[in-house]
Computed example of a mutant assay.
Amino acid sequence: METLQSMRLFVRVANSDSFSAAGRAFGLSPASVSRHVNALETQLGVRLVHRTSRQLALTEAGQLYLQKATRILADIDALTEQVAQHQARPRGLLHVHTRVAIGRDYLGPLLPGFLARYPEVTVKLFLTEEPRDLIGNNIDIAIRLGNLDEPHLAVRKLSDAAERILFASPAYLEAHGEVDQPEALLRHNCLTWPLDGRFEDGHALWQFRDARGVRELRVTGGLQVNNGDVLREAALAGIGIALLPSWAVAEDLAAGRLRRVLAQWQVTPTTFDHGIYAVYQRTRQIPPKIRVFVDYLVQALRGTPGGPPPVAHPMPRGRALSRDGSGLSV
């Protein structure tokens, strides 16, 4: 950078025939400008300027250097401007990672609108069942469920998720009795979703919250499966009590095929925060392609807990987000 500054000063000296004029343009004293030119001459091993008490004159080497330096500085300035314009305009390849279900049910319906609005951005959507390290996998944005304790990352909430509810068929409740307290579930067949390899003995942990606080229960039953469609069908068949996002069984509840259980309690198998979050590297300047993508998702998902905007893509019945990305989830 010192050489580049000296080059700029030399060009200004040569064009103005004055150390003083060059100094005024750069906010430097004439002596400081002279030192820059001297350092440049020392670096090159050749004299660039003939100095007299009355005037300055370029040597033959100085004239050649002026010609080449002027061209080089113009190229550098043009490159700087081009990069600045690139930075100011959303463009380039955007690497996005998320779970399969989020990509299918949330991002997929919204991508056409985003790509139409930002045609210079190319989205590379990478779907897996496991989270990925952003830096190690060259990921610009990850879309995840639940609030994250990763202070080195920037996190922005995109949407609240749907309430999780317990439900069963009327036939099951008639045969096995109503449930008036969470502890009563210990006597029932609870249809559960295995999470993160916990409770390999077939149990599951359900948490309940009301005005008095939170309590936990280890429940069990005859079916444990990591697919919400199977859990819903099992509940409809009268096998037991299941836990899923409310909208996943809204039609069944409205039609009377299922009935809600313990409606006065909030319930979850993981955390009470089921929000959807965008995660990206924390930097001073967020690249425009990342900024506009996150802004677009925030706007598109605003006020639509648990799913994408209906105008973007009607949600098929029996599909929801999962903690592991494979279909319906608790």
Results as ranks from 00 to 15, higher is better:
Ile290Ala: 00
Leu73Thr: 06
Lys68Arg: 15
Pro245Gly: 02
Glu81Leu: 15
Leu191Val: 11
Arg117Asp: 10
Gln299Phe: 07
Gln299Trp: 10
Pro269Phe: 08
Ala39Gln: 12
Arg215Glu: 14
Arg144Leu: 10
Phe10Ser: 01
Glu216Leu: 08
Thr98Asp: 06
Arg212Asp: 15
Asn38Trp: 11
Ala142Leu: 06
Pro109Leu: 03
Val155Ile: 14
Arg164Cys: 09
Leu153Glu: 03
Ile165Asn: 00
Leu173Tyr: 07
Pro90Gly: 06
Thr304Asp: 08
Pro182Ala: 03
Gly103Thr: 08
Tyr118Ile: 06
Thr70Tyr: 04
Ala142Pro: 01
Asp180Arg: 13
Leu158Phe: 06
Pro109Thr: 03
Ala278Leu: 01
Gln63His: 12
Ser246Pro: 04
Gly306Ile: 00
Arg164Tyr: 11
Ile102His: 00
Glu2Gln: 15
Arg54Lys: 15
Thr59Pro: 09
Phe293Pro: 00
Asn138Gln: 14
Gly146Asn: 02
Leu145Lys: 04
Leu217Trp: 01
Ile141Thr: 02
Glu233Leu: 15
Glu174Leu: 13
Val214Ala: 10
Val33Pro: 02
Arg209Trp: 09
Arg51Glu: 11
Gly45Ala: 01
Thr304Leu: 05
Arg35Ser: 05
Val33Asp: 02
Asp17Met: 13
Met1Gln: 13
Tyr172Asn: 05
Ser18Arg: 05
Pro287Leu: 05
Pro314Phe: 01
Thr271Leu: 07
Arg259Trp: 05
Val230Pro: 01
Asp201Gly: 07
Val96Asp: 03
Gln207Ala: 09
Ala263Pro: 12
Gly303Asn: 06
Gly62Arg: 00
Asp196Thr: 14
